[in-house]
């Protein structure tokens, strides 16, 4: 169990998401939130603001008319979209790190994060489920535990990969066996330490095993399927590849078939290139 403790001991050394991003998320959950307050929170962090403005001005969001300020972004795109983009901007510096143990080059985690976040949107649409902002955030951050284990705790992921290959074990199961903790739990513990809302922590915690969540919920199922989608397509795939077991219940709880996941994959791929190119330019 030494590795588990070593991984958890590294949590405080991971640079937290800019606090403005987290405060903004809290503020948008308050139905009485005023535009002025939201503007102030974001503009307090100039680098987050400049990254956010770069994202909102992509053809994906702004259309032909440029957006010059946080206020204008909030009014034209709405709280929810701005929150999603602000969190993407906030995650970019961490998500761009290479994660050696998992064989993930610089940018691979971020690309996978963005693809997963776009995928939950598509899957929620297919399942006719209300896509809460927390699902988007959870999808964006779902593999943050790999950064903790690979880049900060320097866990022996090679031994995990060997165990997984030798006995054809799911990669998360091999992580638990070799290291005493899997990347889903490590990520959830990190987000808990950062004070993120419970539903986000839960969706990250159970993204490889949503059937075991208590309570089981569609948000977790969506994040799980988004993760499977990106693994199948090979977006940001590392040494773990497709070595995971799909949930038996997620598709039926969402009342969609595997073809909905395939159609979502097409839509994600079309949006992904623009978005990733944009995110790679963030400071």
């Amino acid at each position: 169990m030494k590795s588990r403790e070593a991984v958890l001991a590294m949590l405080p050394t991971v640079p937290a998401l800019p606090s403005a991003g987290i405060q903004f998320m809290e503020a948008t959950r308050n139905p009485e939130a005023k535009v002025d307050d939201l503007v102030r929170i974001l503009e307090y962090d100039p680098s987050l603001t400049s990254n956010l403005l770069r994202l909102v001005n992509s053809p994906l969001f702004a259309g032909n008319r440029p957006i010059h300020s946080v206020r204008e972004a909030l009014i034209r795109l709405g709280f929810s979209k701005v929150l999603q983009l602000a969190l993407t901007a906030a995650f970019a510096p961490l998500g761009r790190r290479p994660v050696a143990g998992y064989d993930l080059p610089p940018g691979a985690i971020l690309r996978n994060a963005i693809a997963s976040a776009l995928a939950v949107r598509e899957l929620a649409k297919a399942a006719e489920v209300d896509e809460g902002d927390y699902i988007f955030t959870a999808a964006l951050l779902h593999d943050i535990g790999k950064i903790v284990m690979g880049a900060f705790a320097a866990a022996d992921v090679g031994a995990v990969a060997a165990a997984a290959a030798e006995r054809n074990l799911p990669f998360d199961e091999a992580e638990r066996e070799v290291l005493g903790i899997d990347h889903a739990e490590a990520g959830a513990e990190l987000l808990k330490a950062w004070g993120l809302p419970g539903p986000i922590v839960a969706a990250v915690r159970w993204h490889h095993d949503p059937d075991r969540a208590d309570p089981v919920c569609v948000g977790n199922d969506l994040v799980h399927l988004a993760d499977q989608l990106t693994a199948l397509v090979g977006i940001g795939a590392g040494v773990d590849g497709l070595q995971y077991r799909p949930s038996g219940g997620a598709l039926s709880r969402l009342n969609i078939g595997p073809e909905a996941v395939e159609a979502a994959a097409c839509n994600v791929l079309f949006q992904l290139e623009d978005f990733t190119m944009l995110a790679s330019g963030l400071e």
Partner: peptide, 12 residues
């Protein structure tokens, strides 16, 4: 490649 998908959910 495929997931460890004994139930054959995704046979892409």
């Amino acid at each position: 490649a495929s997931l460890l998908d004994e139930n054959g959910v995704f046979r892409i």
